[in-house]
Nucleic acid binder design. Structure first.
Length: 757
DNA sequence: AGCGCTCAGCTTTTT
DNA sequence: GCTGAGCGCT
């Protein structure tokens, strides 16, 4: 180890960062504000451990928030160790995941879920479960729960997803079905959940499947009940770091605790102000409890922000000030000068998108900002649509993060189901999906008969064996037509299983495509067919990168990694394109230019969070996360009206916007009384275009009302407000104190207010 | 058995 | 305004 290389690792760090990097022994809590260089610190710290302490890389475990982050950190560390410069602009390597690490000694890195999956793949037999378990994604879970609801409460109208999230919440709090039933407030809904919960767990077991929560829960169970296995991993991982610790839930917390053995070389990094996953059980309490759990722990605060300009930070700080509970860190930036955040009020979401795209074009052409340095952030995935359409019509390249995921598309799920079923022949969700795809004459009746019979003879695998080999098929209780079709299917299965055992995953994939004629099944002559075809080619390309693992193992690794990809992992960051992304998924990323769209009450903060102060504060932290993604330019957007589910209704400016003092922001051509979007209205919607019913109403209303939209008014009891929409007699008015009210013009005690006052 | 049409629910956020 | 479950027709 040369001094110059060690210098490189410590070079360019500020005092606090330096201390964090060189504090290697004992528990360490790093409170790292947004943009304070925590990723850099973590990478340098690991490089330092290896280079200066001679720690074996294989005895280091780093838990990251996405697999992409793990890949990037791995690159950085390798760069540092190789003596390369650690400057920005490293190529992010996609699909670098723990299972695919090159041979040799490397740290274990990945999300909690992917690390646990790997542990369970080796150890789950200690819990009497099958090693070839499949991982159920949300759609698989919903399908199981839908069946159970139908069975247990055929006429109930509860959404499977609501039941699922109740179960998932319980599991991430380490409650099993009976504990849930004991502890929950009984009502009609929770009674149903309590009934479904144990059946759902049984169904998973019967399918030899694990859901996302199981990966964590079972690993904790394994560690807490099996000292020998735990000792093995204690021996393996001496140095542990966990990123985004403020977003760990109860299971993850228990996992971290179990792993940090006597040496307590555990380093956690987090920021209370960026805790945004409370809805899935994350508990800020975990980061606060760290110093209690480890009394000898050291705390280091990183308070210098290297990312954003001071005006952007001021806006972020102004908003977070409104949270009663917040961390007392004061972020500061050396980038003192810069543009203030720019607020723009659009007429509706279409105009909002148009404005954003115009600005993006502008920035790209005149400021020479590459597209990849610009991002549009929003609260809900549904908002992406308007931006996608605007990008398409203005020829702006974009990448959509999240939304309908690649691996959730029908054709991809189909083909994955074939692979999954081959890996695990007892898994019925996949089986049901593929048994009649493409249609081969196995309908609901035959399927039911097959499943019933399989249950009697000891499982699907057994049943298919009998179907192939049996001398007297007459004994098999399936109608003859279905039986023939199932027999043919059994033959196909047998040939795939042979290929599975002897050939690589690509050969298996091609054999399936070929023997079921999947491509011609997909090709129905519609526009979608081409998309589907391309998706299949894309899938084939991904699969071809797993051939090196050989038979059996290649399929296991591929299925595991594809199931555990995060939305950020899935996105292609290689081309110069703007990013469309939710504020949840954007955590950890940064851009020169950030557009925060949809700052309307009910959307952001979301209506479901309005009646709980706790959830409202989480929304505010989400806003803080969004703002602090911006390095140099920040746009804050809201609308006057918005269309959801084909219904147009007036919007109310988000409280988050009004929480920023006026002197900290600027307005884009915003006139106090006549909003700019109104003047753009005529230009943007020439009469040639067909009008929606809402717009027609708006037009019609203009002649009859004595008020104008945008008009300031005073109401006898509600006080000052502004008219946002006129539909005939009905006025929608947003009051400063009372919020949105719908009033009848002929009855409401309303008077115009002079705009000059 | 399989296709196509209609209607309902949907949108918080994610592994 | 979209997806997908369910029903009815062939």
């Amino acid at each position: 180890m040369s001094d110059s290389k060690q210098d490189l690792i410590l070079q360019g760090l500020n005092d606090a960062q330096l201390e964090a990097v060189t504090t290697t022994e004992g528990p360490l809590l790093i409170l790292a504000g947004a943009g304070s260089g925590k990723t850099r610190v973590l990478a340098h710290r690991i490089a330092y451990l290896i280079r200066s302490y001679g720690v074996n890389p294989a005895s280091i475990l780093a838990v990251t928030f996405t697999n992409k982050a793990a890949g990037e950190m791995k690159e950085r560390i390798l760069g540092l160790l190789a003596g390369a410069s650690d400057q920005e602009g490293e190529e992010a390597q996609l699909h670098v995941m723990p299972g695919k690490a090159p041979k040799g000694q490397v740290p274990a890195m990945g999300t909690f879920h992917s690390i646990c999956a790997q542990i369970l793949r080796r150890e789950i037999q200690h819990l009497n479960r099958a090693n070839n378990f499949v991982i159920f994604d949300t759609l698989d879970q919903v399908s199981v729960i839908r069946d159970l609801i139908k069975e247990l409460s055929p006429h109930s109208s509860f959404a499977p997803r609501a039941v699922l999230s109740a179960i998932s919440r319980a599991k991430s709090d380490m409650q099993d079905a009976s504990e849930y039933a004991r502890q929950v407030d009984p009502n009609y809904f929770t009674d149903l959940v309590a009934q479904i919960f144990p059946r759902y767990e049984q169904a998973l077991k019967a399918n030899e499947a694990l859901d996302f929560d199981d990966l964590l829960v079972l690993t904790v169970e394994l560690f807490e009940n099996n000292p020998v296995v735990l000792a093995k991993y204690h021996g393996k991982w001496q140095y542990i770091s966990i990123d985004e610790y403020q977003d760990t839930n109860q299971v993850q917390y228990r996992l971290a605790k179990a792993l940090a053995r006597e040496g307590h070389n555990i380093c956690v990094v987090g920021d209370e102000n960026q805790s945004i996953y409370g809805f899935r059980g994350a508990d800020i309490g975990n980061i606060l409890a760290f110093t209690k759990d480890y009394p000898e722990s050291k705390i280091i605060k990183l308070e210098q922000n290297y990312r954003s300009t001071e005006p952007i930070l001021q806006a972020a700080n102004a908003i977070i000030q409104h949270n009663a509970s917040r961390s007392n860190k004061e972020l500061w930036s050396a980038r003192k000068s810069g543009d203030k955040p720019l607020i723009y009020e659009a007429l509706d979401e279409t105009q909002e998108a148009k404005y954003v795209i115009d600005q993006i074009k502008n920035m790209h052409n005149s400021e020479k900002i590459p597209y990849e340095q610009m991002a549009v952030l929003y609260r809900t995935n549904a908002q992406s649509r308007a931006f996608e359409e605007a990008c398409i019509s203005h020829n702006i390249p974009y990448r959509l993060v999240g939304g309908v995921k690649f691996y959730e598309r029908k054709e991809i799920k189909d083909l994955l189901a074939f692979l999954r079923y081959i890996q695990n022949p007892e898994e019925k969700v996949s089986f049901k999906r593929i048994v009649n795809v493409p249609p081969r004459g196995i309908g609901t009746t035959s399927l039911r008969e097959m499943l019933d019979w399989a249950a009697q003879v000891g499982g699907l695998k057994q049943a298919f064996g009998l179907l192939r080999d049996s001398q007297s098929l007459d004994d098999i209780p399936i109608n003859s037509r279905g039986k023939n079709a199932l027999q043919d299917f059994a033959q196909m299965l047998a040939s795939w299983e042979e290929i599975y055992r002897t050939c690589n995953i690509l050969e298996l994939f091609d054999a399936i495509l070929d023997s079921v004629n999947y491509l011609s099944y997909i090709n129905d002559g519609t526009d979608q067919a081409q998309d589907r075809f391309e998706n299949i080619q894309e899938l084939r390309k991904v699969i071809s990168s797993y051939t090196e693992y050989g038979p059996v193992h290649g399929l296991t690794i591929f299925l595991e990694e594809s199931a555990l990809l995060t939305s950020v992992d899935e996105a292609d960051f290689h081309q110069d394109a703007i990013t469309l992304i939710t504020m949840h998924a954007v955590k950890g990323l940064e851009f020169e230019v950030v557009f925060l769209a949809g700052l309307d009450e009910g959307l952001f903060p979301h209506s479901r969070c309005l009646d709980s102060e706790k959830e409202l504060e989480e929304e505010r932290r989400l806003c803080y996360v969004g703002i602090t993604r911006a390095k140099t330019w920040l746009y804050l957007l809201h609308t006057q009206m918005r269309t959801t589910w084909g219904e147009t209704s007036p919007s109310v400016t988000s409280r988050f916007l009004t929480e920023i003092p006026e002197e900290l922001v600027e307005y884009d051509s915003f006139d106090e009384d006549i909003a700019p979007a109104r003047s753009a209205y005529g230009i943007a919607l020439p009469p040639k275009q067909p009008l929606t019913s809402g717009q027609k109403d708006l037009q019609a209303s203009k002649q009859t009302s004595k008020f104008k939209e945008g008009q300031k008014v005073r109401h006898k009891s509600f006080g000052l407000g502004r008219i946002v929409q006129i539909k005939g007699e009905e006025l929608s008015v947003v009051f400063e104190k009372a919020g949105l009210k719908k009033l009848l013009e002929s009855l409401a005690p309303l008077e115009k207010v002079d705009s000059s006052q």
